[in-house]
Simulated scan of single mutants.
Amino acid sequence: MNKAVFLDRDGVINEVLTKRVKFVNKPADLYFLPRVPEAIKKLNTYFDYIFVVTNQGGVGLGFMKEAQLQKIHDYMIAQLAKEGAIIHEAVYCPHKPKAGCACRKPSSKMIIDLAEKYNIDLGKSYMVGDTDTDIIAGKNAGAKGVFLGKDDPRADAIFPDLYSAVDWMIVDSQ
Rank of each mutant, 00 (worst) to 15 (best):
M1A: 12
K3H: 04
A4Q: 02
D8W: 03
R9A: 05
D10R: 02
G11I: 04
V12T: 07
N14T: 13
N14D: 09
V16G: 12
L17H: 15
R20W: 15
V21G: 07
K22N: 13
F23L: 15
F23Y: 11
P27T: 08
F32L: 08
V36C: 11
A39F: 05
I40L: 09
K41V: 06
K42Q: 03
N44D: 08
N44Y: 06
Y49R: 00
Y49N: 01
I50W: 02
F51L: 02
V53Y: 00
V53F: 01
V53N: 01
V53K: 01
N55T: 07
N55C: 05
N55I: 10
G58K: 03
G58S: 03
V59C: 06
V59K: 08
V59E: 05
L61E: 15
L61M: 15
G62R: 05
K65I: 10
A67P: 12
Q68E: 13
K71L: 12
K71Q: 15
Y75F: 06
A81H: 04
G84V: 12
G84R: 08
A85T: 01
I86M: 02
I87Y: 04
I87W: 03
E89T: 12
E89N: 03
E89M: 04
Y92F: 13
Y92N: 15
C93D: 07
C93K: 04
P94E: 03
K96M: 10
K98Q: 09
K98M: 04
K98I: 11
K98R: 13
C101S: 08
C101L: 08
A102H: 15
A102T: 12
C103I: 07
K109S: 15
K109C: 10
I111D: 03
I111L: 04
I112C: 06
D113P: 06
D113H: 15
A115I: 07
A115M: 09
K117H: 14
Y118A: 01
Y118F: 09
D121C: 07
D121R: 02
D121F: 03
G123V: 11
Y126H: 04
M127G: 03
D130E: 09
T131Y: 11
T131A: 07
D134F: 00
I135M: 02
G138Q: 03
K139T: 14
N140Y: 15
N140R: 13
A141E: 07
A141K: 02
A143G: 12
G145P: 13
V146A: 04
V146R: 01
L148H: 04
G149F: 00
K150T: 15
P153Q: 13
P153Y: 13
P153A: 13
R154D: 09
D156N: 04
D156Y: 00
I158R: 00
F159K: 00
D161R: 01
Y163A: 13
M169Y: 00
V171E: 10
V171W: 05
